[in-house]
Design a protein around this nucleic acid. Sequence first.
DNA 1: GGCATAATGTTGTGAGACATAACAATCAAG
DNA 2: CTTGATTGTTATGTCTCACAACATTATGCC
Lengths: 154, 154
Amino acid sequence: MGAASISSVADPAERPATLLDGLVGYALRRAHNRMMADLMPILGSISLRPVLFAMLSVIRANPGIIQMGLGTELGIQRANLVPLINELTSRNLIVRRADPRDRRALTLHLTAEGEALLDEAAALIGKHEKRMLTRLSAAERNKLLELLEKIAAE
Amino acid sequence: MGAASISSVADPAERPATLLDGLVGYALRRAHNRMMADLMPILGSISLRPVLFAMLSVIRANPGIIQMGLGTELGIQRANLVPLINELTSRNLIVRRADPRDRRALTLHLTAEGEALLDEAAALIGKHEKRMLTRLSAAERNKLLELLEKIAAE
DNA sequence: GGCATAATGTTGTGAGACATAACAATCAAG
DNA sequence: CTTGATTGTTATGTCTCACAACATTATGCC
């Protein structure tokens, strides 16, 4: 133990405090970056990206959701959603069908292939989350989710 | 209060659970997005972005830091740092100086203008954080910072 | 000293996320 | 029916980020 090392002379690796320390916004950015850096190559192994996984997840939970609804749910504008949906349809993971009640709209449905790939992705992400959160107890993880939701809620 | 509403028939606005629920990575993205959506127009009022504020903060805490060091500290590759530093220098917020001990390197220092703008930005961000975290107690905020650091730590 | 390797700053390039405008087809409200 | 709003689409532009290549300088080894 000994004396507190206030001086930076004794420890060249010591980082001076910045205005960023204590900012929740900055801590969020760092934690999010680290999670994504770990996740992206994992999803890349099955040629997915986080946004595509999110789309498949929402479509599974809402079969027949229209494109506009999917975009609203994920905060993606409909213009930017089009190439993403094209990507999933061209890989036969989802299909577009005419909406029987609104001829402007197109409904979205998972294919059997999409269901299988989504299951595979969910398993990979589950392992990823467990590994990245080993420093947190189950109670801490739940508390973290609760606090993050308080921030995210509009 | 009644029975738990399991059916979705009674409440059309009810959202079915997705694989995204319970994922810390997704909760992080949503919280981070909401914080940034609030912060960016605020910093924009003084023509700053989050990354520029972070750079100024680190340079203040580490006068004479070289570009490579700044990039490492903030997780920005040196190639991408160049136009950002050009932006700050062309606005007379920082200056580049030759490193007396390494003629390859350039050291970075805040100007008086940079100091003043950084103070202004810090005040704005302080109010922003306080307003965005009204739902959290002081203890919850500290716990959140602690948990986020556990995730961000390498 | 001379030489191979690494580090620093820089430029260029491309991919991906995101916002905006405009358009055709369709719906909804008066 | 006619006006305005909604849905999907295309096109465009900006911002962030990664990677490759290069000139200059440091560093380590002979």
